[in-house]
Design a protein around this nucleic acid. Sequence first.
DNA 1: AAGAGGATGAACT
DNA 2: GTTCATCCTCTTG
Length: 202
Amino acid sequence: MQKLPPTFYTRTDVVQIAKDLLGKYLVTNFEGQLTCGKIVETEAYRAPDDKASHAWNNRRTRRTEVMFSEGGVAYVYLCYGIHHLFNVVTGAKDTAHAVLIRAVEPADNVELMLQRRNMVKPAWQLTAGPGALTKALGIRTEHSGLSLTAVDSPIWMEDRGVKIPGAEILAGPRVGVAYAGECAYWEWRFRVKDSPWTSRPF
DNA sequence: AAGAGGATGAACT
DNA sequence: GTTCATCCTCTTG
């Protein structure tokens, strides 16, 4: 159990980081209630040239400002007024790269995750999809801007020694970004092959 | 000051 | 496959 260091996030290749995050563990610890899931699906967003990114063309607004932080910070935002989407900011300061976590496999304290989702027993719906996993882990927009590397942070990433071989990583186009022109075809969505815990297939 | 729309999920037919 | 829930953020006037 090893918390990922700042150097993991500050690398320049956000697409590589998105792949490296598969098999890592996303942990939250709010008020002594720890929950954790193994990451099985991610998407890379690379401003300024990626039209699908909120920070495309280096747009700075109050919401996107956190994306310009140095890598290792959480970017959480509300989608459709309902869903909290969790991203990890990567790269150097003033470089607005981020990786969206799209699905995790439940790992620790599944009981609490079920409770948060109003479910009785574990199924893939528990944590498949960016809005579902944040609800299960208790992540909300108010956590945007939190460091994932500070010692007292309630959210962090762990390496528990799981290695996903390159052959087990499938790439495909990102979801819900049809408006992004040619960027919509970039295959920057990554998932673990044959995992029953990812969101719907390509 | 007001309105449109969004990196979605669940519950329908 | 289709619909709708639901609210913040950004743009425009």
